[in-house]
Design a protein around this nucleic acid. Structure first.
Lengths: 198, 198
DNA sequence: TATATAATTAGATATATATCTAATGAGTTT
DNA sequence: AAACTCATTAGATATATATCTAATTATATA
């Protein structure tokens, strides 16, 4: 049971200093020293908070020379808050100890929505099943590889003709990360954040 | 929503025991003893957590005889999560008044620190005034243009001989942005320094 | 009135964490 | 190589908080 992920998410946001950091970053990326100065904190304190925000997937970092720039993980923030409480409502009558149920569902989705040749028959309408199908496809991409939009489209078309929709869902649900029309897989921790809990 | 409110909201959700309470309550209302038993906790501990959830408006209570029943504050939970992060993307309205107040200071700094030929007499020691002087200079650069370090140095030397210090301050205070020795103006929203984040 | 049940408050303790300074690391510039 | 700059790690400290037991309060019933 991954309550810990949700707890971590809210812990990251349960501190005024970190909220102020996010507020500053909402205007654009900043490096550590600038943040420390704006917030009247020491650099180590900024590092401390940045680590928490990063491990909750709320910010991303980029390094230039020896300075590190932080910026919001915007897409995640937009979706994360809502997702973090969905588990309260989406949870059926089933108890927490039934994690195997998750596995069954996964297998049934793959069995029923994917043809023998591996193509996706149709995009599941049900939220949970859709995520499972998306994840099944996205797992065929290689971590760390930067793909062009063309490449992503071609890749998706192997599975389904509506590549535009699926490509958008990849971004929407944090399976991938897009910058300047370059696509890259997000780390697994980010896109296994919630779905196992609901 | 105020910063403290948001912090309180996330603090309430930043604990596994409280999440499990919400999960239990999502199936229907329960009284304290039942919760204590289900969660393997003492009654006082349940009281403790219930108080936190209540003051974050996540649950409501009802009393019958001498037992207290808890239930989810469903509407709030459905809306509150989204709202709690919207502040990051909204523009703070209270910052507007501050800006007019600072206009006077700005004029006085430009009057006192810049000579008639436009050169900077000296770099102000006071933090706020220094920022104003830096901004006054940096505003002469064109947005969107990528400058080399040589060009930046030459540009600054029109205003002051110590170009190295001022160039560093440009970066430090987010007026400019450096990547691979190329310099570029940051968008104005980033270096509008005098809205402090309290 | 006395007794029983549920909840809260008080007080103690252990763990977590926000922050600082000092030391170290990593990368750049001279 | 030495000096510089930004970031991180280590270690210390103070505050917050999750949990317990014991005592108290509130309500109901015999």
């Amino acid at each position: 049971m991954q309550l810990d992920k949700i707890v971590g998410y809210h812990k990251a946001l349960a501190d005024p200093t970190r909220l102020r950091m996010l507020l500053l970053l909402s205007k654009g990326e900043m490096h550590g020293q600038a943040l420390a100065e704006k917030l009247n904190l020491s650099q180590p304190t900024v590092t401390h908070h940045a680590a928490k925000l990063r491990s909750a997937a709320l910010i991303k970092e980029r390094r230039d020379k020896n300075t590190v720039y932080f910026k919001l993980n915007t897409e995640f923030i937009r979706n994360g808050g809502e997702a973090s409480l969905r588990f309260i409502f989406d949870k059926g009558a089933s108890e927490m100890e039934e994690e195997s149920k998750e596995q069954n569902l996964k297998e049934s989705v793959i069995r029923n929505f994917f043809a023998k040749d591996g193509r996706l028959r149709q995009i599941p309408a049900q939220y949970k099943k859709k995520l499972i199908a998306l994840q099944h496809i996205v797992e065929q991409l290689k971590p760390g590889v930067v793909y062009s939009e063309k490449e992503i489209n071609a890749f998706i078309k192997q599975y389904h003709d509506d590549f535009a929709t699926i490509r958008r869902e990849f971004i929407m649900h944090q399976f991938m990360y897009r910058e300047n029309d370059k696509y890259e897989l997000n780390p697994r921790e980010i896109w296994t954040h919630w779905e196992s809990v609901k």
